[in-house]
Design a protein around this nucleic acid. Structure first.
Length: 586
RNA sequence: UGCCGGAUCGUCUAAUGGUAGGACGGCGGACUCUGGAUCCGCUAGUCUAGGUUCGAGUCCUAGUCCGGCAGCCA
């Protein structure tokens, strides 16, 4: 199921592939001989949700760097807040990274592995006079932090003797104090223009069961304290994170300096991924899940790795996408079309072709003998001769796509209509001889045609050009299936208030109101060729002229076939027709 | 009125003082047993104003605009 961890998209240091400012930095560091020529990165997710497409960018960067430079990349779960984290997430994260085709160096690591070391270092900070136990409440600490333009004020406990702080800190660990009653703070500068340096909190008391350490601890380190030191413990050279941590870098470096870490890691920030038509906020994604707006973290409409996997996205497409978007230091929003391009590009090369009809219309071949079945050869993938061919049964009664017949064809319509010829893919050329209508509604219920007996296999005996080739399924051999068609969960910019609806004051979860109503359409009328009965999980299919599909886990072959539409084919005609209609006065 | 960071075709991204290039999108065409794929072409950009320089997207100065920061979240 998982494919090779081969080199994704870019070449990096070799030179010919895409590069970016981070690869440049790493290359320069290596050229300088820094860190003894080592390159060590890490991917440090917090296990408080599933990985999404934004993480994929970070994964591709960190693991990619290690691959390209012959370095290492650790997987470290940043599990310092037990109230939000769980083993379910820990496991999902590993599964997703492996599926993407990356392998971490050594064992899976956890920030919680370092709790004891972190604690000892904190005691050292206290002894050095670089940290103190503060007994102010959270509210008081907030109130005395100052504002963006005004300095904060110092805590009354700031200058207590180190021995007293040390004693208190040990008793904090021992569980002598109530949650929230005390914290350990770094003693830096309450007047710093960088708020992160205004005596940041290092430890808080939280009696919460940790998914790994259980009840061993009642104090937990904060991100700033845990992260850099974890990097240092692991010998990370380049600690890559997103732009919002830029202001934390001075703090990151301050801790390292106070602990006397030489040759410590270097923090480098890059712009997180933003995509049109979607959200990449774990908080919001969690809200979609818990609020029942989607079926779960792996809902195929979700931008999560699990969702994309279920939807039929491929690891190769995701990696190619990451190589394409680059890495930079300024915020940007990638057009979703770029992801779709990468997806189609991969799927076109790899997907197994099949014939299936979503919305059937009966087609009767009047000069085909009743009860006679013949099989035509159809190639499995025109992009890949090695994929071979199969035989598809053909009969007098067929299903064709409703869209492929028009009683009154619009301008430029090349498909079937009365008196017109069309090729049935891989089978033969047919000419429409008439239609049967429901006398009550006037609706076309059946299309009649005759086939050109010289066109067996689909080739015109006289070499005449046939404008259109359509797909079909023999009714007597058709396999029913359910198709789930997905569309964007959100409009282009989920955070933009729609025209004429300005958000007054605080708008709470306004983005939720922007959830699109028709992101899921279930079509239960599908008929597929028999070969689809053997559809396998994790294999991409192209239903010719319809789109790319994959088997959904809800399917229970051979009795119940459920196909997810990964993405449609480019549809030039639909675009043309839309434009024609829009152009008409009305 | 604080600090940090950023600004190149519609979007993303190169050009590291020397011809502003690529990708996606859009538009047009060729080809085609998928109106798919493929191929070809077109479209379109250096935030502004000064300065340095033979030469500036790149360096300097001053602006403008955008993003981040006031969790005992990460």
């Amino acid at each position: 199921m998982t494919d090779d961890a081969g080199t994704p998209g870019g070449e990096g240091p070799a030179g010919e592939g895409p590069s970016d400012f981070i690869r440049d930095i790493v290359a320069a560091d290596r050229a300088r001989g820094a860190w003894g020529g080592r390159t060590a990165t890490r991917f440090p997710p917090e296990p408080n949700g599933y990985l999404h497409v934004g993480h994929v960018k970070s994964i591709a960067l960190n693991f990619g760097l290690a691959q390209e430079f012959g370095g290492t990349c650790n997987l470290r779960l940043d599990d310092t807040n037990p109230t939000k984290e769980s083993t379910e997430y820990v496991e999902a994260i590993q599964r997703d990274i492996l599926w993407l085709g990356f392998r971490w160096s050594g064992e899976v690591l956890f920030a919680s592995d370092y709790f004891e070391q972190l604690y000892r270092w904190a005691e050292r900070l206290i002894e050095q006079g670089d940290a103190y136990v503060d007994e102010q409440s959270a509210d008081e600490i907030r109130a005395t932090r100052g504002t963006l333009t005004e300095p904060g004020t110092t805590s009354p406990w700031r200058d207590r003797p180190a021995a007293e702080s040390l004693d208190l800190f040990r008793r904090m660990r021992a569980g002598e104090f109530a949650d929230g009653s005390k914290v350990l703070r770094a003693k830096i500068d309450m007047a710093s223009p960088n708020l992160n340096l205004r005596d940041p909190t290092l430890y808080r008391i939280r009696r919460a069961h940790h998914h790994r350490t259980g009840d061993a601890w009642c104090i937990y380190p904060m991100y700033d304290w845990a992260h850099g030191q974890s990097d240092a413990i692991e010998g990370i050279t380049h600690s890559i994170c997103t732009l919002e941590f830029e202001d934390h870098r001075p703090l990151y470096e301050w801790f390292l300096a106070r602990l006397g870490v030489v040759d410590g890691p270097r923090q480098i920030e890059f712009a997180r991924l933003a995509l049109t038509h979607t959200i990449t906020s774990k908080r919001k994604l969690l809200h979609l899940v818990t609020g029942g707006h989607v079926s779960g973290w792996d809902d195929p409409r979700m931008p999560t790795v699990a969702g994309m996997r279920r939807r039929g996205y491929t690891p190769a497409a995701l990696r190619a996408f990451c190589a394409r978007i680059g890495v930079a230091r300024h915020n940007s929003t990638i057009d979703f079309a770029l992801l779709e391009h990468a997806l189609r590009d991969d799927l076109n090369r790899t997907a197994t072709r099949r014939l299936a009809v979503l919305r059937p219309l009966e087609l009767v071949v009047e000069n085909w003998p009743e009860g006679h079945t013949e099989a035509f050869e159809a190639v499995n993938n025109p992009e890949d001769p090695a994929a071979g061919a199969r035989r598809v049964p053909f009969g007098r009664r067929l299903w064709i796509e409703r869209d492929d017949f028009r009683e009154v064809p619009p301008k430029g319509y090349h498909r079937l209509s009365p008196g017109k010829e069309v090729r049935l893919r891989y089978a033969c050329i047919v000419k429409c001889t008439g239609v049967d209508k429901d006398p009550a509604t006037g609706e076309v219920v059946r299309v009649r045609c005759t086939w050109d007996e010289g066109s067996r296999g689909g080739n015109a005996p006289d070499g005449r050009k046939i404008k259109s080739t359509i797909h079909w399924v023999a009714a007597d051999h058709a396999v029913p299936f359910e198709a789930r068609l997905y569309d964007h969960l959100f409009p282009e910019d989920p955070d933009a208030a729609p025209e004429g609806a300005p958000a007054p004051g605080g708008e709470g979860e306004a983005w939720l109101a922007r959830l699109l109503p028709n992101s899921l359409e279930v079509v239960t009328t599908g008929w597929a060729e028999p070969a689809l009965r053997e559809a396998a999980a994790g294999v991409p299919y192209q239903l010719e002229r319809v789109g790319y599909f994959c088997l959904d886990p809800d399917a229970a072959p051979p009795d119940r076939l459920v196909l997810n539409r990964t993405i449609g084919l480019r549809d030039t005609w639909a675009k043309l027709e839309q434009r024609q209609q829009a152009g008409k006065p009305g």
